[in-house]
Lab assay of single mutants.
Amino acid sequence: NQASVVANQLIPINTALTLVAMRSEVVTPVGIPAEDIPRLVSMQVNRAVPLGTTLMPDMVKGYA
């Protein structure tokens, strides 16, 4: 099972992602792969992401 990126805190809309804001977890459905965490740092989310939410490619500006 592949680990996905999960919000480690509430991430407000247009907030730049940080290492502290993300964690890796095996979840269903699978979201952005955990190995992409370094690439996600400083990218912005295009919606509010609640704690525990799996990050999907369409939630991160410039990711997809």
Rank of each mutant, 00 (worst) to 15 (best):
Arg47Tyr: 07
Ala21Gln: 12
Gly62Ala: 08
Pro12Ala: 09
Leu40Thr: 00
Asn46Val: 12
Arg23Pro: 00
Ala34Arg: 04
Val41Pro: 00
Leu51Asn: 11
Leu55Gln: 02
Gly31Asp: 00
Ser24Val: 12
Ala34Trp: 06
Pro33Glu: 02
Gln44Arg: 15
Glu25Gln: 10
Ile37Pro: 01
Thr28Lys: 08
Leu55Ser: 03
Thr53Lys: 09
Lys61Gly: 06
Arg23Val: 06
Val27Ser: 04
Val26Gln: 09
Val5Ser: 01
Tyr63Asn: 03
Asp58Asn: 11
Ile11Pro: 02
Val49His: 03
Asp36Val: 08
Ala64Asn: 14
Glu35Ser: 13
Val41Glu: 05
Ile32Gly: 01
Arg39Phe: 12
Pro50Val: 07
Asn8Met: 06
Gly52Tyr: 03
Val30Glu: 11
Tyr63Ala: 02
Thr18Asn: 06
Val30Leu: 15
Met59Lys: 00
Ile13Gln: 12
Gly31Tyr: 05
Val26Pro: 05
Ile37Asp: 03
Arg47Ile: 12
Ala7Trp: 03
Asn1Ser: 15
Met56Tyr: 07
Gly52Asn: 13
Val49Lys: 02
Gly62Leu: 07
Ala34Asn: 04
Leu51Val: 15
Asn46Glu: 07
Thr15Trp: 13
Ser24Asp: 06
Val27Asp: 03
Ala34Asp: 06
Gly31Ser: 01
Asp36Arg: 09
Val60Arg: 02
Leu55Asp: 00
Met59Val: 06
Glu25Met: 12
Leu19Ile: 08
Glu35Asp: 13
Asp36Lys: 10
Val49Thr: 03
Arg39Val: 10
Leu55Ile: 14
Leu17Asn: 00
Thr54Pro: 05
Val45Ile: 05
Leu10Asp: 15
Leu51Gln: 13
Val20His: 14
Arg23Gly: 08
Ile32Glu: 01
Pro33Thr: 07
Gln2Asp: 09
Met43Thr: 02
Val5Leu: 02
Asn8Cys: 09
Thr18Arg: 08
Arg47Asp: 05
Arg39Ile: 13
Leu10Ser: 13
Ser4Trp: 02
Gly52Trp: 03
Ala7Met: 06
Pro33Ser: 08
Ile11Tyr: 02
Ala48Val: 14
Val27Tyr: 03
Ile13Asp: 10
Leu55Gly: 03
Val5Trp: 04
Pro38Tyr: 13
Ala48Tyr: 10
Val41Lys: 03
Pro57Trp: 14
Gln2Val: 13
Pro38Ser: 11
Ile32Ser: 02
Val30Trp: 12
Asp58His: 12
Val5Thr: 05
Val49Ile: 15
Pro33Tyr: 07
Gln9Gly: 05
Ile37Cys: 03
Asn8Gly: 08
Asn14Ser: 06
Val45Asn: 00
Val49Asn: 04
Val5Pro: 00
Ala34Val: 07
Ala64Pro: 09
Pro29Thr: 03
Ile37Met: 13
Arg39Pro: 00
Ala16Met: 13
Thr18Ala: 07
Val5Gly: 02
Asp58Gly: 10
Met56Gln: 12
Thr15Cys: 11
Thr18Glu: 07
Pro29Ser: 04
Ser24Gly: 11
Val30Met: 15
Gln44Pro: 07
Ile13Lys: 14
Ala3Asp: 05
Asn1Arg: 07
Glu25Thr: 07
Ser4Val: 01
Thr15Glu: 09
Ala16Pro: 13
Leu40Gly: 00
Val30Gly: 08
Val6Ala: 00
Leu10Gln: 11
Val6Gly: 02
Arg23Leu: 05
Leu51His: 10
Ile32Lys: 02
Glu25Cys: 09
Asn8Asp: 08
Leu55His: 01
Ile37Gly: 02
Ser24Cys: 08
Arg47Asn: 05
Met59Gln: 04
Ala64Cys: 15
Gly62Ser: 08
Pro33Leu: 08
Pro12Met: 08
Ala48Trp: 12
Val5Arg: 01
Thr28His: 11
Ala21Thr: 08
Val49Gly: 03
Ser42Cys: 14
Gly52Thr: 00
Ser24Phe: 08
Gln9Glu: 13
Arg39Tyr: 15
Pro12Gly: 07
Leu17Ser: 01
Ile37Glu: 02
Leu19Gln: 07
Thr54Glu: 03
Asn8Phe: 05
Ala16Thr: 10
Val41Gln: 05
Gly52Met: 04
Met43Tyr: 10
Pro12Thr: 08
Ile11Gln: 01
Leu51Ile: 14
Ala21Arg: 09
Ala16Gly: 08
Val30Asp: 08
Ser42Tyr: 10
Val60His: 03
Ala21Trp: 06
Gly62Val: 04
Val41Ala: 04
Val30Gln: 12
Gly62Phe: 08
Ile32Arg: 02
Ala3Met: 12
Leu55Ala: 03
Val6Asn: 03
Pro12Ser: 08
Val30His: 13
Met56Ile: 06
Leu19Trp: 14
Tyr63Thr: 00
Leu19Asp: 05
Ile32Tyr: 01
Leu19Cys: 08
Ala16Arg: 12
Gln9Cys: 11
Val27Ile: 06
Thr28Gln: 11
Glu35Thr: 14
Asp36Met: 11
Pro38Thr: 09
Glu35Met: 10
Gly62Asp: 10
Thr28Asp: 14
Leu10Asn: 15
Lys61Ser: 10
Pro38Leu: 14
Thr18Val: 07
Gly31Gln: 01
Pro50Cys: 09
Val49Tyr: 04
Asn46His: 06
Asp58Leu: 08
Ala64Val: 14
Arg23Gln: 03
Leu10Glu: 14
Asn1Met: 15
Lys61Asn: 10
Glu35Gly: 12
Gln9Thr: 13
Thr28Pro: 01
Ile37Leu: 11
Pro12Phe: 06
Ala7Pro: 01
Ala3Arg: 09
Val60Glu: 03
Gln2Cys: 10
Ile13Phe: 11
Ala21Asn: 14
Ser24Thr: 10
Ser4Tyr: 04
Ile13Trp: 09
Ala48Glu: 13
Val41Ser: 03
Ser42Asn: 13
Met59Leu: 03
Leu17Cys: 05
Ala48Phe: 10
Val49Phe: 03
Leu40Arg: 00
Arg39Met: 14
Leu10Cys: 15
Leu17Gly: 00
Lys61Arg: 15
Lys61Ala: 11
Val26Cys: 11
Asn46Gly: 07
Asp58Val: 08
Val30Asn: 11
Glu25Arg: 10
Glu25Gly: 09
Met56Leu: 09
Ala7Lys: 00
Gln9Val: 13
Val6His: 00
Val45Cys: 05
Asn46Gln: 08
Thr28Gly: 05
Asn46Phe: 04
Met43Phe: 09
Met43Glu: 02
Leu10Ala: 14
Tyr63Lys: 01
Val27Gly: 03
Val27Phe: 03
Pro12Lys: 10
Asp58Ala: 12
Glu35Phe: 13
Met59Cys: 05
Gly52Lys: 01
Asp36Tyr: 14
Arg23Ser: 06
Asn14Met: 10
Leu40Val: 04
Pro57Thr: 05
Thr18Leu: 06
Asn1Val: 15
Asn14Phe: 10
Thr15Gly: 09
Gly62Lys: 07
Asn8Pro: 02
Leu55Glu: 03
Ile11Arg: 01
Val49Arg: 02
Val30Tyr: 14
Pro50Met: 13
Met22Ile: 08
Ser4His: 02
Ala48Asp: 15
Ile11Met: 05
Ile37Tyr: 03
Ala3Leu: 11
Ser42Glu: 08
Thr18Gln: 07
Leu17Met: 04
Gly52Ser: 05
Thr53Met: 14
Ser4Glu: 01
Ala48Lys: 11
Thr18Pro: 01
Ile32Pro: 01
Leu19Ala: 07
Ala48Ser: 14
Asn14Arg: 07
Val45Thr: 09
Ala16Leu: 12
Met43Lys: 08
Met22Asn: 00
Val30Pro: 14
Met56Arg: 08
Pro33Phe: 09
Thr54Met: 02
Met22Val: 06
Gln44Ile: 14
Arg47His: 06
Met43Leu: 12
Thr28Phe: 13
Pro29Val: 05
Ser24Leu: 06
Asp36Ile: 07
Pro57Met: 06
Met56Thr: 11
Pro12Ile: 06
Asn46Pro: 02
Ala64Ile: 13
Leu10Gly: 09
Val27Trp: 04
Val6Pro: 01
Met59Phe: 10
Val20Gly: 13
Leu51Phe: 14
Thr15Ala: 11
Val26His: 12
Met56His: 07
Gly62Tyr: 08
Leu19Lys: 07
Thr53Asp: 09
Ala21Ser: 13
Ile11Glu: 02
Gly31Ala: 04
Gln44Ala: 09
Ala7Leu: 05
Gln9Trp: 11
Tyr63Gln: 02
Val60Pro: 02
Val41Phe: 00
Val41Cys: 06
Asp58Glu: 12
Glu35Ile: 12
Arg39His: 10
Pro50Ser: 10
Thr53Ala: 13
Ile13His: 09
Met43Arg: 10
Arg39Asn: 09
Ser4Leu: 01
Pro12Asp: 08
Gly31Met: 02
Ile32Val: 07
Tyr63Met: 04
Ala16Glu: 11
Ile37Gln: 01
Asp58Phe: 15
Asn14Trp: 15
Ile37Arg: 06
Pro57His: 07
Ser4Asp: 00
Val26Ser: 08
Arg23Cys: 06
Asn1Cys: 14
Ala64Phe: 11
Ile11Cys: 04
Val41Trp: 00
Met43Val: 04
Glu25Leu: 10
Leu40Asn: 00
Val26Ile: 13
Ala7Glu: 01
Ala34Tyr: 06
Leu55Pro: 02
Ala34Thr: 05
Met22Glu: 01
Leu55Lys: 01
Ala21Ile: 08
Thr53Gly: 09
Ala34Met: 06
Ser42Asp: 10
Gln44Cys: 11
Asn14Pro: 00
Leu51Arg: 15
Asn1Phe: 12
